[in-house]
Write a protein that binds this DNA or RNA. Sequence first.
DNA 1: CTGAAAGCGCTTACAG
DNA 2: CTGAAAGCGCTTACAG
Lengths: 372, 372
Amino acid sequence: MIKKKKRAVTIKDIAREAGVSISTVSFAFNGTAPVAQETKDRIFEVINRLNYRPNSAARGLVTRKTNNICLFTPHPTSDFFSFSGNGVFSDLMQGIGEVLDQKDYNLLISWDTVGYKAKTPKLIRLIREQAMDGVLICLPSQDSSIINELNEHNFPLVIIGGADKSSAVNTVDVDNHEISYRVTRHLLELGHKRIAFISPGQLEFLVCEDRLEGYKEAMSDAGLKVRDDYIFIGDETESSGYRAAEAFMSLKEPPTAIVAGRDIQAVGVLEYTKEHDISVPQTLALVSFENSQLAEKHGITSITTNLYEIGKEGAKLLIKLLNRKKERAAQNMVIPSGLVVRGSSQPQSESSAPSVAASTESISVRTRSRKQ
Amino acid sequence: MIKKKKRAVTIKDIAREAGVSISTVSFAFNGTAPVAQETKDRIFEVINRLNYRPNSAARGLVTRKTNNICLFTPHPTSDFFSFSGNGVFSDLMQGIGEVLDQKDYNLLISWDTVGYKAKTPKLIRLIREQAMDGVLICLPSQDSSIINELNEHNFPLVIIGGADKSSAVNTVDVDNHEISYRVTRHLLELGHKRIAFISPGQLEFLVCEDRLEGYKEAMSDAGLKVRDDYIFIGDETESSGYRAAEAFMSLKEPPTAIVAGRDIQAVGVLEYTKEHDISVPQTLALVSFENSQLAEKHGITSITTNLYEIGKEGAKLLIKLLNRKKERAAQNMVIPSGLVVRGSSQPQSESSAPSVAASTESISVRTRSRKQ
DNA sequence: CTGAAAGCGCTTACAG
DNA sequence: CTGAAAGCGCTTACAG
């Protein structure tokens, strides 16, 4: 037996060893044409003995499939992902990873290096090189130049998180407008009228804009005026929540409730109330988004924004797109959110007992989709 | 002008449009053979106009290069990565990402789905399909079956984080043994003799084993006995730190200092001391690993374990390997760590003033490598 | 059920 | 400096 070093085993090796043609090997291996059981057995014996796997480049060249899907997103430590306390980026990756693994797709990552709304040479290069079959985009705001390039080259695309519902693109996201409305509504139902809002980040981010709008709409619908001094643009730091609280509570007419844009901000608010002996929820009620461990730990009422589910459903949708022959209308999938009520927004009549979770939907997250 | 829809532009299109042969296009594009300036200009005009990029599969088939490097790691939300408070996984990805972006490599991710020390079909498949040029492994413990397969196929490999120094593999890591020794030594120098240790996780994890050994060695070197009841196997939760403190402080002879295996555990310890009116550092001194935001926030003395640097240097090393013709001895690179002293381990003579950082090496992280 | 042949889009000797 | 040709390892009509 001659041992060749290093060279990878090819379909020719299998064919020779099994005494058949390479087409037969291909047919057997892929189950793409009928092959006699006997020869099939012979072929697979050799395949397994030699640990044969088709070279991905060669196969990709003819099938025009790479089995790679690309995730395009800001760097993991950028402020888009830097929600302390909760692994937003990890959750997203986990969701995507689980689906791709199961479907035998590989995950290729391309960072949005140049900052928001910037040109994106790397992704564009990958598109033109046809290095993947489809792409998953997760950006703070929509970049139409990428979307156009993707469409031109017929690359299936799903936008996850921060989806602009108005465009005819496949999206998977939480409905930030709706959940912000719901969270504000929760405070209104507790009797609050002076409700302030902290934006989770700059308003250029779609998530932030949507949450602000949801808050405003809830206020208007309740017949209340939206006051500019009740709106604070925060960021990913705890201290931005602290500063927001400081600003609000220094007003002549301070709010009786705050909608924090994210849990870490809510923690900042609590820090302020502790320092200034403001009782929560008696004097100041507090609700937030994310429902991360932080919210649980500090007894903050919060609404879930499940990045894990978003990643998972996004990946699923993309794969479905890849295996579809005929085009269909773009789908906008919304991941349900559950409001988890805790001590920070308990009705005042009830005792301020340890946090109580009272949510219907927070566990069983189902997905529904609607045509656009 | 005839507009063809959808078909990607190939080297043939460029050749036809520029009136040259495809070899000349290839030579010009890759700068791999001299081409007359005039024809070169003509070719590049067409290339730019048509946005040509060589098909990656076709190119990969002949060059045997994919420009992909694969990261093999547990799922991002697995307990290996679930250090709350700090984005270990994000930091790692960030470091890797920056280097690869700059060098025009793509990042392919393969999760270690089956748990620790398990068979790993996915990675093995990618190896055999030759879907990448090299791999970066980041696992809680070494898996020799993978390493063997990698070697068989001549795949360059770098192990980052959790590296077993004994084997002849390229590694990049913090020296967990040394930093644990250093951190314990710090307490010894403050006069402590009864020092307890909380393991950051199960001892099967190399990181944990190394840190425990470093602690033990420091104790022995100081002529102190290592007591079994001074060792607690913690995990990634805050409460494991709390429970460790509880166990230690209930001993007949409680320790006067604790080495927490990670910052989140140190926070748990502080929670316990607060509840039980134990003054830190007077009655109980505390040091930890990671030097995350948690350590800073709570004034905990901690030693840096820079995953960002580890990722970065790991990626750099791997790329160096890829571009090297002749083999060289395996390299073990250690990322320097800096001890950041804060209030939790202040010498008792000094006032318990707000945290003071006193570290020489924590900022300027340089790398040195040694042959093995 | 099986094989010979073409072709995917490139790179790379080899001539000239 | 440029072109014709072979070949990378596969899949897929096309015959038989």
